[in-house]
Structures are given as C-alpha cells and as structure tokens.
C-alpha cells in the first residue's frame, strides 16, 4: 500500500489547488454574466428596492469580489451551494433530484463499454487480419469520431421510430422500463468509448501474445483459452481503466447532449434549463460538482493503475 499512499500524498494537494482554481473561475461566472448581478440573482421576482437590498446583503455584493468569493466558498464547503433563482430551492437539492438518471445513464454506458469493447477487441486480436478483425476495426474507425448527439438522433430514428424497439422520449418508470428507456441514450453515450476500448484492447492483446513468454507457453502446450484469458485479458486492464475513467470524466458533457437528445430529466438537462433561464447558481453548482467528480475520478484511475500493474507499483516505490 506504500506506493498508493505516496501517490495520494503527492496528488491530493495538487487536486485541492486545482479545485480551488476551478471554484474561483466558476464563481467568476456570476460577475461575468451579462446584466447586473442583483438582477441575475433576483430572477423572475419583482425588483423592489427591499428585494434588491436583501439580495445585496445576502450575497455580500457591497463587498470586494474576493470577499464575496470567500463567503460563497465557505458556504460550498459546508454543502450550501446557494439557492436556485428559478425555484427558490437549494441548488444541492435541485442537483440531487436529477442525479439518479445521470448516474444510471453513466453506469449503463460504462457496462456497455466494458462488456462490448473488451470482447470485440480480443476477438479482433485473435482473428488478426481475418474478416472479423477487418469488420471490427472498420466499425471502430467509424464509431470513434462519431459525435454522441448525431448518433443519438440516428439511433432514435432507426430503433425508435422505424423499428419501434425502444421508446423515443423520457426516462420511464423505475426498473425494467427505465432500462428500456436508457438503452439508446447509453449506446449513444458509450459508442465512441466502445470503439476506443476495442482498439486499445486489440493493440494490447496483440502486443502481449507476440511476446516470447507466450510463444514459450504455447510451445509447452498451454491451451489457447488459457493464454487468452490469463495473459491477454489481464493486459487489457490498463487501457480499459483509462477509458472507463475517460467516460466518467466525459459523462457530464456527454450527458448534457444525450439527455437533451432523448429528453431525459437528468443533471445534463438541468444545466441547459438553467442556462436558458439564466439560473446562474444552479449552473455554478453543477459545474463545480462536475469538476470535483472529474478530479476525483482521475485520482482513482491513477490509484487503479497501481493496483493493476505491478510494474507501476515498482516504479513508484
């Protein structure tokens, strides 16, 4: 566990600093948004002198920018991200009520990436230069750069409207209905990452089966099954971890696009509603939480590398 602690000791202060910088930028959004800050925070309520005064007092608007920032940051650290301009509810509560859909979508997409990307990559590597390899590799080229929202509309048309296999709107009820509703969105979100994992798994597997120790293993008569499961599969763990980390980091951006495409009431859709309603505190809350989540995931991915790859453990200690 030594290398892990050393990694944490080195990375945690950097992560904290990074988060501090992001929080300053996110807070600055309010000052940079067009129009007066009081009006922006007042929202649709009538702009009476008392109301404006109350806002000024509540957000310390008569004080310098950095003091305002300090008050806001203190609140955030205590879990208070302010109040939604649109509904008057706490920002944290508004995010929490939308979070489950986005988390389920991200989890579904991650499952698809691992359960489709790894087997396809191994298949392509095992049938190297055969028809299956060509088909998989060509598909990966197409899928890797295809943007999620364009793919989403095409999926909606083919599988929703033409074939009628999947619902075209909303998130459905909890349970099996939810899975059906989230299938097309999860595919749209995962597609480019599935292609990436397939490519990397293929490259990693081809690399490891051409090594001397596996030639020796084959010469000793180890069955191909053992070689592929025990050696090739294990060596794909690092690229797969990288991609899962990437998809979690990218999930928030992807979620905005995919949730808008499929009319899902998740955090991504909340961002767009808040942007169009000029509900700056909610936008700030989501942006800051998303940045914190991405920083945490990056840290976890680096820790996972240490657990997966003994070479990295040695290099670190």
């Amino acid at each position: 566990m030594r290398p892990a602690l050393r990694l944490l000791a080195r990375r945690l202060p950097v992560s904290a600093l990074l988060l501090l910088a992001v929080s300053l930028a996110v807070f600055g959004l309010l000052a940079l948004s067009p129009g007066s800050t009081e009006r922006a925070l007042l929202g649709p309520r009538p702009a009476t002198a008392e109301a404006l005064d109350a806002i000024r007092h509540r957000y310390h608007l008569d004080q310098p920018f950095l003091v305002q920032y300090g008050h806001w940051l203190g609140g955030v650290l205590r879990g208070d991200m302010g109040v939604s301009v649109q509904t008057g509810e706490p920002v944290a509560a508004r995010i929490a009520e939308r979070l489950s859909i986005t988390l389920e979508l991200g989890l579904y997409a991650t499952l698809l990436i691992v359960l489709l990307g790894v087997p396809l990559g191994l298949l392509a590597a095992a049938r190297r230069d055969g028809a299956a390899d060509h088909a998989v590799s060509a598909g990966a080229v197409l899928a890797v750069s295809a943007p999620s929202f364009a793919v989403g509309v095409l999926l909606l048309y083919v599988f929703g409207v033409r074939l009628g296999w999947f619902p075209v709107f909303g998130a459905g009820e909890e349970g099996w209905d939810r899975v059906r509703h989230l299938t097309l969105p999860a595919v749209a979100l995962a597609l480019s990452q599935i292609a990436l994992v397939t490519r990397q798994t293929r490259a990693a597997a081809i690399d490891v089966v051409s090594r001397d120790h596996l030639t020796f293993a084959r010469a000793r008569g180890l069955p191909g099954r053992v070689i592929w499961r025990r050696y090739a599969l294990r060596n794909t763990a690092v690229p797969v971890t990288t991609s899962v980390g990437l998809v979690l980091a990218y999930a928030m951006t992807g979620a905005v696009l995919v949730e808008v495409t499929f009319s899902l009431p998740g955090v991504g859709a909340l961002v767009m509603e808040s942007v169009s309603n000029k509900d700056v505190p909610v936008v700030q809350g989501v942006a800051l939480s998303a940045a914190a989540a991405v920083i945490a995931v990056n840290l976890l991915v680096d820790l996972a590398y240490l657990a997966l790859d003994p070479r990295l453990r040695q290099a670190a200690s």
Binding site: L29, S33, Y250, M252, T253, V256, V271, V283, A287
Partner: peptide, 20 residues
C-alpha cells in the same frame, strides 16, 4: 495538466451559455 483534468466540454457549454 490543469486543462486535462477538467470537464472541458461542460465548461465550454457553461461559459458560452452564461456569459453569452
């Protein structure tokens, strides 16, 4: 490194959306 560890796409949406 700084830019690498941020949700860049989301920030683009937020910046263009809020600041205009």
């Amino acid at each position: 490194d700084f830019a690498h560890s941020l949700p860049v796409g989301l920030l683009t949406i937020v910046v263009v959306g809020v600041i205009g």
